[in-house]
Design a protein around this nucleic acid. Sequence first.
DNA 1: TTCCGCGTAGAAAGCGCTTTCTATACGCTG
DNA 2: CAGCGTATAGAAAGCGCTTTCTACGCGGAA
Lengths: 354, 354
Amino acid sequence: MTVTLADVAAHARVSPATVSRVLNGNYPVAAATRERVLRAVSELDYVVNGPASALAAATSDLVGILVNDIADPFFGIMAGAAQAHLNAPADPSAPVRTNGERLAVVCNTGGSPARELTYLTLLQRQRAAAVILTGGAIEDDEHSAAVAAKLARLAEAGTRIVLCGRPALSGPGAGPVHATLSFDNRAGARRLTEHLLGLGHTRIGYVAGPAERTTTRHRLEGHRDALSAAGVAHDPALVLHGSYDRASGRAAAAQLLSAAPDLTAIVAANDTIALGVCAGARERGLRIPEDLSVTGFDDLPSATDAVPALTTVRLPLYEAGARAGALATGAGVPGGVEVVPAELVVRGSTKAPL
Amino acid sequence: MTVTLADVAAHARVSPATVSRVLNGNYPVAAATRERVLRAVSELDYVVNGPASALAAATSDLVGILVNDIADPFFGIMAGAAQAHLNAPADPSAPVRTNGERLAVVCNTGGSPARELTYLTLLQRQRAAAVILTGGAIEDDEHSAAVAAKLARLAEAGTRIVLCGRPALSGPGAGPVHATLSFDNRAGARRLTEHLLGLGHTRIGYVAGPAERTTTRHRLEGHRDALSAAGVAHDPALVLHGSYDRASGRAAAAQLLSAAPDLTAIVAANDTIALGVCAGARERGLRIPEDLSVTGFDDLPSATDAVPALTTVRLPLYEAGARAGALATGAGVPGGVEVVPAELVVRGSTKAPL
DNA sequence: TTCCGCGTAGAAAGCGCTTTCTATACGCTG
DNA sequence: CAGCGTATAGAAAGCGCTTTCTACGCGGAA
């Protein structure tokens, strides 16, 4: 039925061991022999049996990328970049690169703690080579402990763990993590609000993400830090929590603007929410930025092209994803934590209040 | 080191065969024995070794979802839906559902033919249970033949093939395909242009996607069909090809509007391009829809929330993805082709020309 | 010439699981 | 009570690959 390594060996008149060695290139094989084997491989159109290989070698070429929402470009960009950089760069000198190729798999948790654990188990079952966890973590002691335990078991079995856009684990949980790319959400958020304060805004609304996410908390803290540093009283009534989507921003804008019509600016927890806020504000007849300044976060492609273009905080998502891919294949020092900078980008959606 | 099935068997004082049977539930096991085994499983925190299981059973629980661009919500929505519907519905009666859970993996081809084939090989290597190919296919005889050959080999090895948003394969290549969900791009595009013609537009620009994609071609054909049915001459100079992104739409709008300032409407090949077209038109001082009508395609979330909301064609992406997930697990009749309807949605971005 | 070392290839023992085939112990029927 | 079907559990043979250990042949050192 399907061609096996033994078939190739028979065809090339060598032993299975030799075929394996040619394919994996980790043992000297005479040039003539290698040539013969490679010819047999292509003549028979042989494809390695992944499970068998994984079983015998006790490792696999699977890399899992966990994302909170696959329909959100924030994750799509990171996942795509990671995936692109996981496949080892093409090496023209090797005619058959069976090794080095990794199967990057994107797993969509939908933000559900249970599914996050389920996927980790599935990856553990597959003896994944690496796991990349992207985006904010859920702040729940029980869940955090469960994840830390899972990661420990994964690491024990040789799976490399990389966090991307998620704060470094501290304490005993940090052990199994190979590398962390943490986004400087706090500093970015602070700069954004400082920009608004500098423009003269003092009545500033805030549309936050889901309450239990680290990303949400850090961005909000940065905002508050800026306010208190400037001596502006923080009004909890001006902060609304919702999900990281457009509809949430639109609804929050409506609510915020009717409760506090004197707002001159609204800070959104990310670009998608910000675009929703813009839509909501326009429905109330407000012009942006003349009547209301709006800011986003992340600098997704849609932020650049919106009208007016969003003042936001640029997070180098592609670069971070690419780096995460590299780290997952072994780059970097074990236990390293790299802070990804968050850069203020001022565009048309902010202006001094009238 | 790691707990194996034999360890569980020893702990439960039964044979490995019995443990396997309890876990897979495909053979009668006495209630008391099952109980003992399950306790041992949880006490030892046992996790099946996927590769070993896949090797012995000659099947795996991996399902590959190939997408052209993971950062595009068009694909993200379908992939997320498919993934959500691939995991068998939770069955409370079974305490340990080791089976039924599938590892849905999203593979990002980036639109590259080579990567499409690479991923198919990787999935073949893993002996994937199913492969879902989403989005338009690339129209190139050589590549089509290569893909068809790969699919044939995959099907031979028991992998189920599902096409989602891609035209049904015809001729000998259709054999291995289990099911096809084809989007009615042509009819949708025709209705859209008919809507514009009905409003009185006759000078209509068209911003198409990449030339070599089936989706691009079908949508453009629908547009032309509507024009010729209405007796409106088709001007090839009004059609521009680009990629399926915002920047492309913006650039195309600029080019189209300076070359043909008398245009009263621009049809974009999808919503993302349409938003770019809107941005480009505004930069030239045009109001939408008063000075220029713009239409999209797909009805992504951003189309609803844009200002003005886009007139577009709704494609039930979530439902299609969900259905593809179900088909990948065996639903539907082999060889079936289901046409996914494309429904015209009229919103604020279109209006009769002044 | 003899012996050792090196380069290369084969033999064979698993990796951890599934599954067929076989064995045992019942509880029936006649 | 003999004989048999049924329900349940174990033994053991692989699944296709990797890898250690072993073997062979040849060139150079002694």
